[in-house]
Simulated assay, not measured.
Amino acid sequence: MFNFGGQEMIVIFLIVLLLFGAKKLPELARGVGKSMGEFKKARNDFENEIKG
């Protein structure tokens, strides 16, 4: 879907760093990680419901 190279990732990281600041990045990353975990869990639960 998205095909990001190294340079694009660096630019995105710098933009996020400017927007949120260095102190907020660990908190932001933790929140994104938890959200992705919850999404994967919900997706797996949904797939299990469909299968049987």
Rank of each mutant, 00 (worst) to 15 (best):
G6R: 07
R30Q: 07
I10Y: 13
L28S: 02
G5P: 04
G31R: 12
I50P: 12
L14A: 11
A42D: 12
E47V: 07
F13T: 09
F2R: 06
L18I: 08
M1R: 07
V32P: 00
G5I: 04
R43H: 10
E8I: 02
E38V: 00
F4Y: 13
V11K: 15
K23C: 05
N48G: 06
G52C: 06
F46L: 09
Q7D: 14
V16D: 04
L28R: 03
R30W: 00
I50V: 15
K34H: 02
P26F: 03
L17I: 01
M9C: 09
L28F: 12
P26N: 06
F2Q: 12
K34M: 02
P26L: 01
N3C: 06
N44D: 12
I12S: 07
L18H: 10
G6T: 00
V11P: 05
M1C: 07
L18T: 13
D45W: 02
N48A: 15
D45H: 03
L19K: 13
K23Y: 08
Q7E: 15
K51H: 10
Q7F: 11
F13Y: 11
F46H: 06
M1E: 14
G21F: 07
G33V: 00
S35H: 03
Q7C: 05
F2I: 13
F13L: 06
N3I: 03
F13V: 00
V11R: 15
Q7S: 12
L19T: 11
F39Y: 09
G52D: 14
G6D: 08
S35R: 09
G6I: 01
I12M: 15
V11G: 11
E47I: 08
E27Y: 07
G6P: 11
F46E: 14
F46Y: 13
M9W: 08
G31C: 01
G52S: 14
V32G: 05
M1W: 06
S35M: 07
I15A: 10
F13M: 09
M36C: 03
K41P: 00
G33E: 04
K24T: 01
F39I: 01
A29C: 01
L14H: 14
Q7N: 13
G37H: 03
M36F: 08
K34D: 03
F13N: 12
I50T: 14
N48L: 11
I10M: 14
V16H: 03
M1I: 04
M36K: 13
G21A: 08
I10S: 13
L28P: 03
G33F: 04
A42P: 01
K41G: 01
K24Q: 12
A42I: 01
R43Q: 13
K34T: 02
D45V: 02
F20T: 02
E27S: 07
I15E: 09
G6L: 04
V32L: 14
V16T: 13
L25C: 04
M9A: 09
G37K: 12
R30M: 00
K34G: 00
G5Q: 07
L14S: 12
A22P: 02
K23L: 10
N44T: 04
F4G: 03
F13W: 08
L18K: 15
S35C: 00
K51D: 10
N44R: 08
Q7L: 11
E49D: 11
N3M: 05
